[in-house]
Amino acid sequence: MILRDRSMLAEFVHAAEKCHGEVYYEDSLGDKLNLKSALSQFLLTIILYKADDVEYWISFEEEDRALLLPYLKEKSDP
């Protein structure tokens, strides 16, 4: 899944901090960031705004789905 709208990034990050399990950003270049780390959140912001052509996905534990879903969408969704 990917971020629904990057303008909601701060809210998404706050939600990720509340998750029980880890929340990761991963991309096709092999990068993997644990989004509970402040520095990773900062990096994610730069990536989403400055390197927006990179193919990425967000992975998380199933139990945190409800918490994160408002901010995420399937890659195929418009």
Binding site: D27, L39, L43, I46, K50, A51
Partner: peptide, 22 residues
């Protein structure tokens, strides 16, 4: 200092450059 911290993330080159540039 922040750059040094970034270096520990072992980011791919394109992402590292973007972060460093910012």
């Amino acid at each position: 200092v922040l750059e040094a911290a970034l270096a520990r993330f072992k980011l791919s080159e394109p992402l590292y450059q973007q972060a460093e540039h910012f």
